[in-house]
Amino acid sequence: MNKKLVDDIRKKTYEYFQKANIVLTNDEINNIEVADFGLNDIEKMGLQLVTYINTSRYCAKEMVLFPKQTCPEHKHPKREDNSEGKMETFRCRWGEVYLYVEGERTSNPIAILPKEYGKNFTVFKEIVLEAGQQFTIKPNTLHWFQAGDKGAVISEFSSNSDDSSDIFTDKNIKRLPEY
């Protein structure tokens, strides 16, 4: 992604944080992470986020998904030091988010996957989160999520985040942004 596109997405992301009444510092606004997962298709497959803190013990983030934007299927496995993978709680702050985890498939899921990515999604137990609702995902659990028609703002509270250890179903994904 080029700098202008990243700057435009950061501006748009900040507008969503404002809708959710989330106050950010100027430094946080200027450093909003834009993750396109190396797919160069940010409007369909991507995520925008601010990490408040990420220590060896815990992590707190705010995430924005634009309308129908999807965070691809992945899991947080055991670490090289044999510690558990990341456990995370998602709390919807604004909008609506469709979260999919391992378990019995929901008939007629709400999310609509772009055809070019459909084969890279395997779990379809649906949890619908509206503002004020939350769900906790256990370590090493496949999951993915998509915003509703208005987009979504989600807070994440988790154990330590090590993005480089995430395992994505789509082997073409690069988690860390390249811009």
Rank of each mutant, 00 (worst) to 15 (best):
L176H: 15
F135A: 12
V23T: 14
E96D: 07
N30E: 15
E102F: 01
A131E: 06
Y52Q: 06
P67H: 10
T25R: 05
D27K: 09
N172F: 04
P67G: 14
V128S: 07
D170L: 06
C71L: 14
Q134K: 07
K78M: 08
G148K: 10
T141H: 08
V97Q: 14
G151D: 05
R93T: 09
V101A: 10
T70A: 04
F135G: 07
G118F: 02
L49R: 15
V153Y: 08
K125N: 15
N54R: 09
E178H: 08
L99I: 01
F66S: 08
G85F: 11
M87C: 01
V64C: 05
V23L: 13
S164G: 08
D81M: 06
A152T: 08
I42Y: 14
F121C: 06
L113H: 07
E104Q: 10
L176P: 01
W144R: 07
T106L: 10
R175A: 07
W144N: 03
F168R: 06
N21P: 01
V64L: 06
F135D: 06
H74N: 03
H76P: 00
E130D: 09
F90Y: 15
D166S: 04
L39D: 02
G85Q: 15
N140R: 04
S107K: 15
R175W: 09
E156F: 10
P77H: 14
S83A: 15
Q134V: 01
E84R: 09
E15K: 07
F66C: 05
N140D: 12
K171H: 03
Y58L: 07
K150M: 08
F168W: 07
I127K: 03
R105I: 03
R93D: 07
D162P: 00
Q48C: 13
K138F: 15
K12A: 08
R10G: 03
I42R: 15
D41N: 13
Y58H: 14
I110Y: 09
D36L: 08
E33L: 13
R57N: 04
I29E: 04
L24V: 03
T70H: 02
M87W: 01
F157N: 09
A35Y: 04
F90M: 09
A35K: 15
T122G: 03
K11R: 12
E178D: 14
D149A: 10
L49G: 13
G46A: 11
L99W: 00
E80Y: 00
L99F: 00
Y14P: 01
D162V: 10
E28H: 06
S158M: 05
M45R: 13
Y52E: 06
W144L: 05
H74Y: 03
M45K: 11
K61L: 02
A20D: 00
R175S: 07
V123A: 12
D41V: 11
I9S: 05
C71K: 13
K171R: 08
E116Y: 02
N140Y: 01
Y16K: 14
K119P: 00
Y16M: 14
Q133M: 05
I53T: 11
K125C: 10
Q134L: 04
C92K: 09
D162S: 10
N21H: 11
K12I: 04
Y16N: 10
E73P: 00
F157A: 08
T55H: 11
D166H: 06
R93N: 10
L24S: 05
